[in-house]
Amino acid sequence: MHPSPSVIIFTTLSGLGFGLMIFLGLGAPSVTGWVAFWFYLIAYVLAVGGLMASAFHLGHPERALKAFTQWHTSWLSREAVAAVAALLVMGIYAALAVFFGLRIPALGWLGAALSLLTLIATAMIYTQLRTVPRWNHVLTPLHLVSTALAGGALLAGQVTPASVLLLAAGLIQIGHWSVGDTRFAEAGHTLGSATGLGSRGQVRAFEPPHTGPNYLLREMVYVVGRKHALKLRILAAGFGYALPLVLILVPGAGHVLGGIAVISHLLGVFASRWLFFAEAEHVVGLYYGARV
C-alpha cells in the first residue's frame, strides 16, 4: 500500500494524542491548573493535528461532516464519531481541571473510554480489510492500540505503566511483523484464484491493461523501499520501544531523558508506521503480476 505521509502522520500523532488522553482521563497524572493546561494542550495538538493531517488525503474535505453518518456499518465513520465524542468529553473534563481545579473522575473515565474506542476504530479500519492479508488479523488492533497506549504512558510520565506497555507493545510489534510476513501466502490468494484460470495451468501476467501507471498501481501495488525493510524494522524496534524503555528505567530519569525517550519513540513509530503501509500487499497486485 502507498505509505501516504498524511495517513502515517495521522495514525502516529493521533495515536499518541489519544493514548495520552486515556491516561489523563484516568487521572494518571492527576493534574489541575497550568500543569493540566500543558498536558491537555499536547494531547489536543497531537490528536487534532493528526485528524487534520488525515483530512488532507481526502478528495473532498469539505464534505467531511457526512462521514459521521454511517457509524452502524463503517469503522471509518465510527472512528470519526468516537474521535469527536472523545475530544468533546475530554474538553469539558480538561476545562474544569484547568480553570476550576476540579476533576470529575466519571467524566475522565468516559473520555478515556471514548479515546480507547477511537484507537480501536482506527485500528479496525485496517484490520477489516480482507484484501490486505498482512493487516487482516487480531495482532493489527493489538499492535496499533498497544503502541498508542505505550506512547501515551510515556508522554504522561507514568514510568511503571510505560515500561510495561513499551515492552508489551514492542513484543506485539515483532509478532505483527513475523505473523504478517506469511499472511499473504496463508490466505491462499494467487493469480490462479484471482483469474479463475489456476486449474488450467501456470498463470503468468502477460500484458498489463495499459502501458502507463494508474491509481490502483500507485495506491495499492506500492513496492518502493522494501529492500530496506529489515533495517527499518530494527530502527523502529530500537527507537520506538527498546531505547525509550531503557531511558525511562534510568534511576532518577528526569524531563530531559523523558523528552529524549518521547522523541525516540515518535521516530521509531514513524518508521514502524511507514513499514505498516509500505510492506502491506493488496491482493489486487495479483492482477498486475506483482505478487509472486
Binding site: 481526502l58 478528495g59 480489510l129 490468494h189 491509481y215 489486487v284
Partner: peptide
C-alpha cells in the same frame, strides 16, 4: 463522496478508481 479511497482498498478486484481531477 469525500474521496477517502477506503472503498478502493476494500475491493479485491481493483474495480474502483479515484478520479485524480474530480477527487
Amino acid at each position: 463522496c469525500i474521496g477517502c479511497g477506503l472503498c478502493a482498498w476494500a475491493c479485491p478486484y481493483g474495480a474502483r478508481e479515484m478520479d485524480a481531477a474530480a477527487g
